[in-house]
Design a protein around this nucleic acid. Structure first.
Length: 837
RNA sequence: GCCCUUGUGGCGGAAUGGUAGACGCAACGGACUUAAAAUCCGUUGGUUUGAACAAGACCGUGCCAGUUCGAGUCUGGCCAAGGGCACCA
């Protein structure tokens, strides 16, 4: 017998799989399609066990679906634009393109393939290749044509370390998502945006359709979109009929309690609202506010600041004159950038007037009475001090007040979303160029579609990482002729956020080599939507929201016939390990010094064992702590299979057995083995196809089968024909069940058993209902819900029979002595519970 | 502050409202071996009665209540850890 040597067999089969194109997805095949997708990686260079998890989970699903008769598309590619390449280039004087290419090559050939993944590499996409980013640019032009891409001057988030602006979604707690020690700065800049807000309502509503998504991801997206229902009410300015100040409020019922108005320091009309005497003060304040980082401005315990503008607004309901202030607690890009101050019923406003001694006017009361407020009263109540609206509940008041405002032309119902338009400009080199020109006479001009791609210049580009778009210095590239007037024009020097590239790659896989169009509509509509998407929870908002937005926009461009790109989503948990640096168990990562590389482990114990461990140690959505010891445990499991198979085969003939056992199994031990084998098929099939993908229990069941087989042969010296049949049945099916989890060893043993190449094209095994039947059951006897005895008895007895058996037990009789029998609950074949007083 | 998730042996984790701890790791014991490793076979929640490696008893799924014949599982309240959002009007 040879020893289990994963290093030999794994490499051998990987080559064979590739040569025979085992995982090729066929467009428009007869079989039903199944699109299995994993979030494509950024090619950072070296994968470790932490990265392995997502690929393994997705691979098991793909392989299982293939064996279940589906035409499976399981593609892979690389999200290859991005800052790390540029930073590496600055540090090591190597072009980002070279660095990225080298990493992709390593990840693909030394790591992903060695994990035993089943990708159709013919459909590989690499987002930094011109044949891909040509379509990124083409999409931008479609967005531009349809007024979804637009430019505006706006306060934007600037990361001084990245030297670029960031989208809202890329700011976490006021810090850059790439640098959790770097506060984001606010700048006013003219930048490109995508109008994702156009789809805010649909993005929100369609979350309800996504039954195959984890609830927590949907909740996060709902919160992010942040729908608020209320009213917009317009205030006029005393003595200045040219300026109107609309405000958005969710509490129109408190309109009579407004005692001041606040506008954001960046409010465009602010200059017209400042009284001459206040000018110096206000300008000083605006200047200060602009210097604050996001984190300083939003700090939780920050005391309210602000200055009066010296002018007054008029409350359209009361005609009262109320002072106008500016304060940085009002942000420009939400609502209208102006807020009505109702200190009596809003905590922030209350805090503001306490600091600046402005009046408080109560208009909602729990009991209809007015009293001194120590805090803002934000609960429901009855309206008071509100003229004709007095006595209404505040909920009624919301509608009545808004209707009144609408009738009189100074307000209306209004819905506002927290979601902002997506800022996509980046002042960096290693990204997709924005295909726009600035002509001296025509202004903003799109590059013609037939001119695409606008290639990234490689000459005269100096990467320093300090200030300004690197493309500004690529002088040869920068100046072009305007396609409209042939005059001089300059190229846009910003590149696109890399999240644009990843917002449509899953569509491109459906027709990855097409150089005429982004994809053939028929192909995309055949393969899409994705049946099962697997990826990290860190993209709960970012990538997943952007992709949903793209899908809806492309549907409106009549390229797609579906509304949502991903039917089912699995967010796998992190892989963790003890970090000596942190002194605790944290996510496996290079910077925390707690990585376990793949190669060393694969060399010694094989990818199959690593795959099994990472799936076995906990269910996919939970965290899993890497343990090399634990993984060796799975290696032992594979060795046990291997040894058992070859040991037995040396002594006895084992054959492929693709049928059920037809003979009557008299030997109870043999019958039990056959039952366990069928039970294993049943439970593994369930675990691998339920939406939670509980692979951990599936693997436990297979381990049990092997343990049962070992026990079966323990004292056996000779085997009957029927013994051999059952053992053959066990092996045949175990190998198939194991195939998605440990693809190499199962392919090898399948061949050794006489199976035809490849096991991965075999039909998924079925089990026999009859074989699951047992004659005997374990009957549990309880008294008052507590287990007191357990006995083996015949299956299928009536309630009366079981009750009689239970009451006749010695242990029961003893306890029944002197007590009154209240009732007996019988669950057939399971339990008898005797209730006494 | 608001929202979400999770609390089960030494550890990772199993349990359609019906035998808590499957399976694995670690530990311990036995067989094999000159020996060790490997392997195969066992034991392993706690407390306790007992001469016993016989046979029992009691307690036990973060805490406190509740529903139920019966709760790790359902309901309410609390505590702890993790995550998301947060001056969004």
């Amino acid at each position: 017998m040879n020893n289990y040597s994963p290093k030999e067999i794994e490499g051998k089969w990987q080559i064979k799989w590739e040569q025979t194109q085992l995982y090729k997805a066929i467009d428009f095949d007869n079989k039903p399609k199944y699109y299995s997708l994993v979030m494509f990686p950024y090619p950072s260079g070296d994968l470790h066990m932490g990265h392995m998890r997502v690929y393994t989970i997705s691979d098991v699903i793909s392989r299982h679906r293939r064996m279940s008769g589906f035409n499976v598309l399981n593609p892979m590619g690389f999200d290859a634009f991005g800052l790390p390449a540029e930073n590496a280039a600055i540090e090591r004087k190597i072009h980002p393109k070279e660095w990225t290419k080298k990493n992709i090559d390593h990840m693909k050939n030394q790591q992903l393939k060695r994990m035993g993944t089943s990708y159709d590499w013919d459909r590989e996409v690499v987002s930094c290749n011109p044949d891909y980013y040509k379509w990124t640019q083409w999409l931008f032009l479609q967005f531009h044509k349809n007024n979804i891409a637009y430019q505006k001057e706006a306060p934007v988030n600037w990361c001084p370390k990245c030297q670029t602006v960031l989208a809202n979604e890329q700011v976490e707690d006021g810090m850059c998502w790439r640098h959790d020690d770097t506060p984001v700065e606010r700048k006013m800049m003219r930048q490109w945006f995508l109008k994702i807000t156009k789809y805010a309502e649909e993005l929100l509503q369609d979350l309800n359709k996504l039954e195959g998504w984890p609830e927590r991801v949907k909740i996060m997206q709902r919160n992010w979109i942040g729908k608020s229902t209320g009213a917009e009410i317009t205030f006029s300015v005393d003595g200045n009929p040219d300026v109107k100040i609309p405000v958005f409020t969710t509490r129109p019922d408190t309109i009579f309690g407004v005692t001041y108005l606040v506008v954001a320091p960046e409010y465009p009309q602010i200059a017209k609202l400042i009284k001459e005497e206040n000018k110096k003060n206000v300008e000083e304040y605006i200047k200060q506010a602009s210097h604050l980082t996001e984190i300083e401005r939003m700090a939780e315990n920050k005391e309210k600041t602000g200055v009066p503008l010296g002018t007054f607004a008029i409350n359209p309901f009361t005609n009262e004159k109320i002072p106008i202030w500016t304060s940085d607690y009002v942000v420009l890009d939400y609502g209208t950038g102006a807020v009505m101050g109702v200190p009596a019923h809003d905590e922030r406003d209350f805090e503001f007037v306490k600091k600046f001694n402005l009046p408080i006017k109560q208009v909602i009361s729990s009991d209809g009475l007015q009293r001194d407020l120590n805090n803002a009263y934000i609960d429901r109540g009855t309206m008071i001090n509100s003229g004709e609206f007095n006595g209404l509940t505040n909920e009624e008041g919301k509608t009545k007040i808004t209707e009144h405002a609408k009738r009189n032309g100074f307000g209306n119902f209004k819905i506002t979303y927290r979601l902002r338009d997506w800022l996509i400009s980046r002042q960096r080199y290693w990204g997709c160029p924005i295909p726009i020109l600035y002509c001296n006479s025509c202004g903003i001009v799109s590059v013609k579609e037939e001119e695409l791609p606008v290639l990234l210049p490689e000459k005269n580009v100096e990467l320093t990482g300090t200030g300004g778009s690197p493309l500004l210095k690529a002088t040869d590239w920068l100046t072009v002729k305007c396609p409209k007037c042939s005059g001089n024009a300059q190229r846009e020097t910003d590149t696109m956020d890399t999240f644009i590239c990843s917002s449509y790659y899953y569509l491109r896989y459906s027709d990855a080599k097409n150089d005429k169009e982004i994809f053939q509509k028929e192909k995309a509509n055949y393969w899409l939507p994705v049946d099962q998407y697997v990826g990290g929870i860190e993209h709960a908002i970012l990538h997943l929201l952007y992709s949903r937005f793209f899908t809806k926009a492309l549907r409106d461009f009549e390229l797609l016939k579906f509304d949502e790109p991903f039917v089912n989503l699995l967010s796998q948990g992190m892989v963790t390990m003890f970090s000596p640096k942190e002194g605790k168990i944290v996510k496996m990562s290079k910077s925390k010094g707690n990585v376990v590389g793949t190669s060393e482990f694969f060399d010694q114990y094989g990818a199959d064992a690593a795959r099994l461990f990472i799936l076995f140690a906990s269910p996919p959505e939970q965290e899993v702590e890497w343990s090399t010891q634990g993984a060796i445990g799975q290696y032992r499991f594979l060795e046990r299979i291997w040894r058992l198979f070859f040991n037995l085969r040396e002594k006895e003939s084992l054959v492929l057995f693709n049928d059920f056992i037809k003979s009557n199994l008299q030997d109870p031990v043999l019958k039990e083995l056959y039952r366990v084998a069928n039970y294993t098929i049943k439970t593994v099939s369930e675990d691998i196809s339920n939406k939670k993908y509980t692979f951990n229990t599936a693997i436990a069941r297979m381990t049990e089968l092997i343990n049962t087989m070992y026990k079966f042969i323990l004292d056996k010296t000779s085997y009957t024909e029927l013994d051999k049949e059952v053992l053959s049945f066990c092996f045949t099916n175990l190998f198939k069940l194991l195939a998605p989890f440990a693809p190499h060893i199962s392919e090898e043993l399948w061949g050794q058993l006489g199976g035809k190449y490849s096991i991965h094209n075999q039909e998924w095994p079925k089990y026999s209902e009859d074989a699951l039947f047992t004659d005997e059951i374990q009957l549990v006897i309880q008294m008052g819900g507590k287990k007191i005895d357990i006995l083996t008895t015949r299956k299928g007895q009536s309630q009366e029979e079981l009750e009689k058996i239970a009451l006749n037990q010695e242990k029961v009789k003893i306890r029944l002595n002197g007590k009154e029998l209240v009732k007996v609950v019988v669950v057939p074949d399971k339990i008898v519970n005797i209730v006494v007083k």
